[in-house]
Design a protein around this nucleic acid. Structure first.
Lengths: 165, 165
DNA sequence: AAACATTTTTAGACCAGGCTATTTTTTAAA
DNA sequence: TTTAAAAAATAGCCTGGTCTAAAAATGTTT
């Protein structure tokens, strides 16, 4: 049909597929990444802090903590402190690294306006092998700063010529 | 807190925000993009074809058609053919272009394994200004093929050295 | 044109991840 | 140590995008 051998699904369809593979949902990743950030200093965080940071209400956090606990990423008991398990820390570190890599790449190609939103949306959909490519590419660009310099130059010229949407 | 001035939300949180801005949901984009592909030849398509292509059941298509009709992207009456409005065509073309741009970029940096899934997931989260950066960057890389050549070379060397995850 | 097959629609259920309102527990102050 | 305030948990509702089962419309034979 379209590209041969490629099956299309809706956004929901992909979500269901990855749930079947027992992967984390996008929201679970958001919570885990944030818990990882917040517990970096003290080794723990609290429901209220997570709620405030993610702009959700506390009951949403509690509910998600049960899920992350069941999945083995969070050590948690009622009214207690939130701590990641070693597994949770490993994943949290991975997620944060993925976030930062993506962010750095987008900055390199000149994204400014919706940087944060785009990173937050895109990160959940970057598979591990793709992340590896991105990492390699960012490292490559970092090692040859003239490339980005030249690209910036082209972009600037383009703006001058008024070729923009 | 984290990066100053950046507000974090969960995946759902962002979805709600963009709904409030009256933007299309990810699923709506998937349907619209597919209708655009399928109706490219004949100028129309059918519920069954959309359902088969997106691996959903026909009632899901019907329901979504009502929404896209309300939003003014689809011309549609019961049991009839599905046609895009001019507005729908414009957006469809934009979505397809975004898809292809992203795909080309990922291919350039050497993505092979999950190319299709990653494109399908990422595309919905690429804002218009970010897409513009990507377009510029892909054009730049296309105009200087030595860059990608050299990058490929580095990647290959890296594999040789066994520095991979 | 009658009968059968296919396509589409309708109706209603389900699930994740939010929410609000309320109750329970913990913490801080008097 | 009793009381007030803050934090967390529970219960239950809502929404979007799916599904299935059943009904309705359309198309295709013969």
């Amino acid at each position: 049909m379209n590209e041969p051998g490629e099956k299309f699904y809706t956004a929901r369809g992909y979500a269901v597929l990855s749930a079947e593979e027992d992967e984390l949902t996008s929201s679970m990743e958001d919570y885990l990444e944030m818990i990882y950030r917040l517990s970096a200093q003290e080794g723990y965080t609290r429901v209220k802090d997570v709620a405030d940071s993610l702009h959700v209400q506390p009951p949403s956090v509690t509910k998600m903590l049960h899920k992350l606990h069941e999945k083995g990423q969070v050590r948690y008991e009622k009214y207690g402190l939130i701590r990641l398990t070693p597994e949770g820390r490993r994943i949290g570190a991975y997620l944060l690294n993925r976030h930062n890599t993506l962010r750095e790449f987008l900055q390199l190609i000149g994204v400014k306006e919706h940087l944060h939103e785009d990173v937050e949306g895109i990160e959940h959909n970057v598979s591990t092998p793709t992340l590896q490519c991105l990492l390699d590419f960012v490292a490559f660009l970092r090692s040859k700063p003239q490339i980005i310099e030249e690209f910036r130059h082209c972009q600037a010229k383009k703006i001058e010529r008024g070729n923009w949407g």
